[in-house]
C-alpha cells in the first residue's frame, strides 16, 4: 500500500445554510494524481482552501504527512510542504515573473528576516528561480511584471512558484482554466511527469486532461464525494454519469 501523504476525514464547512463541504473524506497517496471533478459550485475550491489553510473547516480532520494541520495557518502549511495554485491567479503583480518565483525560493531557504544582501545579486535565489521558469517555459518572460503577463502565462507562473517550494504535495485548482488547447496539452505532459516529485490533488474541468492524467478520480457534487475510483470506474459509474458527466456527454 502506497504511503498516504494527505488524509481528509469527514470534513464539513457551511456558508450559512449552504453545505459547501458535506462530510468529505479523501486521500492523496505518494506518486499519484488524484483528480477532483464536479460541477461548478460543488465545493472543489472550498475544499482546496480548507486544505491550504485559507478557510477553517467547521469539523473534520486534515492530516498532512501524518500530522493534524488544524492549528496551522496558510504560511505554516506551506512551510510543511503544501504548495497550491489558485483558480484565479494570485501573484505579486508589480514584481517580475522572476521575482515572484524568487519569493518562493527565499521562503524555502528559511527566514526572510535578512536585511542586507540585495536579492537581485543573490545567485542562490535568481538561479533556482530561473531554472523553475525555464521548466514551465517562461524563461523568456522572466523580467516581465506579472501584471503584464497573459492569462496563460500567469497560470504557468503559478506552477513555477509551486515547483520552487519543493513541496511534498501539490494542490492545483483548475490549472488549465483559460489556457487554450496547446497550453493544456503541454501542461498535461508536464503534470504527468510532476507526480513523481510530489503527488497532485488536481481540480480540473478539462476532462481530456483528467482522463489522461488521473490515477484516481473523486467526484464532488453538492459538497459530497459521490464516487472515488479509477478512471474507468468513474467513467462507467451510473450515478456519476447522471449527476455530472451526463451534463456534458
Amino acid at each position: 500500500m502506497a504511503e498516504t501523504v494527505l488524509e481528509i476525514r469527514d470534513l464539513r464547512k457551511s456558508f450559512g445554510a449552504l453545505k459547501a463541504t458535506d462530510g468529505v473524506s479523501l486521500d492523496l497517496v505518494r506518486g499519484e494524481i488524484h483528480a477532483l471533478i464536479g460541477p461548478n459550485g460543488a465545493g472543489k475550491s472550498t475544499l482546496i482552501h480548507q486544505i491550504a489553510g485559507s478557510l477553517t473547516p467547521d469539523s473534520g480532520t486534515i492530516r498532512f504527512l501524518g500530522r493534524d494541520v488544524a492549528g496551522l495557518d496558510m504560511a505554516a502549511r506551506a512551510r510543511l510542504g503544501l504548495a497550491r495554485s489558485f483558480q484565479t491567479s494570485s501573484l505579486a503583480r508589480e514584481f517580475s515573473a522572476l521575482r515572484n518565483v524568487m519569493l518562493a525560493v527565499q521562503a524555502r531557504q528559511g527566514s526572510s528576516l535578512r536585511f542586507l544582501r540585495p536579492v537581485m545579486q543573490d545567485a542562490s535565489l535568481t538561479e533556482p528561480a530561473m531554472a523553475m521558469l525555464a521548466r514551465v517555459g517562461l524563461a523568456e518572460r522572466a523580467h516581465v511584471p506579472a501584471a503584464e503577463l497573459s492569462h496563460g502565462e500567469c497560470r504557468q507562473l503559478e506552477i513555477a512558484i509551486a515547483l520552487a517550494l519543493g513541496p511534498r504535495a501539490f494542490l492545483l485548482d483548475e490549472p488549465m482554466a483559460g489556457m487554450g488547447p496547446e497550453g493544456s496539452r503541454r501542461l498535461t505532459a508536464f503534470l504527468d511527469a510532476l507526480r513523481q516529485e510530489a503527488p497532485i490533488l488536481l481540480v480540473e474541468h478539462d476532462m481530456d486532461a483528467v482522463f489522461a492524467l488521473a490515477d484516481r478520480i473523486s467526484v464532488l457534487v453538492y459538497g459530497r464525494v459521490i464516487a472515488t475510483g479509477k478512471v474507468d470506474e468513474i467513467r462507467n459509474d451510473p450515478e456519476v454519469r447522471r449527476a455530472y458527466l451526463g451534463e456534458s456527454a
Binding site: M74, A75, R99, L103, A104, S112, R114, L116, P118, V119
Partner: peptide, 29 residues
C-alpha cells in the same frame, strides 16, 4: 535602500501587493 532590496524587503513589498501570495509560499505577512 538596503531593506528594500533585501529578502526582507521582497517579502514586505509582496505583502503589500498580495498577502495571500506571500502566505502561500510560506512567509507569514
Amino acid at each position: 535602500r538596503a531593506l528594500r532590496d533585501s529578502r526582507f524587503g521582497a517579502a514586505l513589498q509582496a505583502a503589500r501587493q498580495n498577502e495571500v501570495r506571500l502566505a502561500a509560499v510560506g512567509i507569514a505577512p
